[in-house]
Design a protein around this nucleic acid. Structure first.
Lengths: 245, 245
DNA sequence: CCCGGTACACTGGTCTGACCAGTAGCACCA
DNA sequence: TGGTGCTACTGGTCAGACCAGTGTACCGGG
């Protein structure tokens, strides 16, 4: 016979549960408004501090947002990956996940996304890719180019028809960039960098158009390796190689 | 010239920042204790409710845990993926991420983990795999078998030397199982199921031992497809096929 | 000497009531 | 009609209080 540890259930937790259930199940749609705190405390029959702690938790989870002065009450937010991103970011820092692992993970995700995109892409996807490329080549300045680059990757991930891939990719991309953005900012020749990236992406686009998943994945992984591996500590670089076969 | 939206910074947020920084940077190690709430309110020079809201947020992020009555104060927790899991779970439900996407994502992660494991595995990894298999074949009852199965997958992921892969795998596995556990529980012949899984895993183990990454990845993905595809809605099943080449 | 029980100081959880800065919406005015 | 000032009300914060429950130090009995 196995028993489970028992912990007292706090009042604010019950409130979180109820509201979270309503939001996550879709009963409360994004943009909808919760009653104000004073109203909630009569509905739940608790003190305001208890209501507030519950709202704090929901706010930390990016489920709602509340601003002082708004008589319409706290707003229900659309699901977004930023909570996921925060969690992963924290975990990466706390567990001392190095750039090597991060890059390896991104090679896996991006590679798979490209593979799937090549097989599942539709006409509109291809147009979107062309458009993203055009934006990239028209970009002046590194900041703008970087935004366009993100858009390109998102387009690919979307073509792969998998939101998890889109979001995880987004998250890891963010964490990777955060770790090396200072190094990138001081890169000697940003113009050359941008031209190289653009060339890479055009190759990828062509492979996806041709439906050649293996090539697309291969190109994506190789491009990541070529551009970022120099920032990875020597001893971690070996574990990236199996992904380049 | 670009401006950014400005939002007032709440007092509790500043507290969260300070404590989170201390925890995530490792200045406060797991097991360490924070001062009690009354002590914190004098240190931060705020009221207790403000301190409490900050602690609530940190608690929701699984960074600390506090129990009433403990004179040692709130405890700093070790980094764990459960916060990540909660975020992903919420997102999966709210965005209506279907079983198809989930399974696809898991095929990507597990496949890559197996590929890497085959290339990077060491002697102890192989022993651990053998041990996990022994536990599986000795398991009596489905619950025990399932635990051993999880352990096997974790061993593989660990052999791949990538914590992100380990954790993401864990998360997705959890969500997938949650979605179909009821169907699985009523499966007609659990004994046969278990025997099939065991056979799959032995093949995988052999491929990893042989260093044949492609086969290991292939076997892992195929096994997932064979066992779970029947629960995936017909129209989503097509997008799994590109991963089975 | 060790051990089980007890008292106590203190913890976090919750409530009440209050004040403040700041907002949305409305009535008012030009 | 279009701007403008007022006002009711919001969330953020504080102070003080009570309670159930915990850890520990103390104490008495074996």
């Amino acid at each position: 016979m196995q028993f489970e540890p028992v912990a007292p259930v706090r009042a604010y937790e019950r409130i979180v549960e109820q509201i979270e259930e309503a939001v996550v199940s879709g009963r409360l749609k994004p943009g909808a408004r919760l009653p104000g705190e004073r109203e909630l405390m009569t509905q739940f029959e608790v003190g305001r501090s208890t209501v507030r702690e519950a709202l704090r938790v929901l706010q930390a989870a990016e489920l709602i947002r509340s601003r002082p002065g708004d008589p319409r009450g706290p707003e229900v937010l659309a699901a977004s990956p930023v909570a996921l991103q925060r969690s992963m970011h924290r975990l990466a820092r706390a567990e001392h996940v190095g750039l090597g692992e991060l890059l390896q993970f991104r090679m896996v995700l991006d590679g798979s996304a490209h593979l799937l995109a090549a097989h599942l892409r539709t006409g509109p996807d291809l147009s979107a890719l062309d458009e993203a490329l055009a934006t990239m080549s028209a970009a002046k300045g590194y900041a703008e180019f970087s935004r366009a680059d993100v858009a390109f990757h998102e387009t690919v991930a979307r073509a792969a028809r998998n939101q998890l891939l889109v979001m995880s990719g987004e998250v890891v991309r963010g964490v990777v960039l955060e770790l090396i953005e200072d190094k990138l900012a001081h890169a000697r020749d940003q113009a050359t960098l941008m031209r190289t990236w653009l060339g890479h992406h055009e190759q990828v686009r062509d492979a996806i158009r041709a439906g050649d998943g293996e090539s697309a994945a291969q190109l994506a992984r190789q491009a990541l390796y070529d551009n970022y591996a120099e920032y990875v500590p020597e001893e971690e670089r070996a574990q990236l190689l199996p992904l380049l076969t």
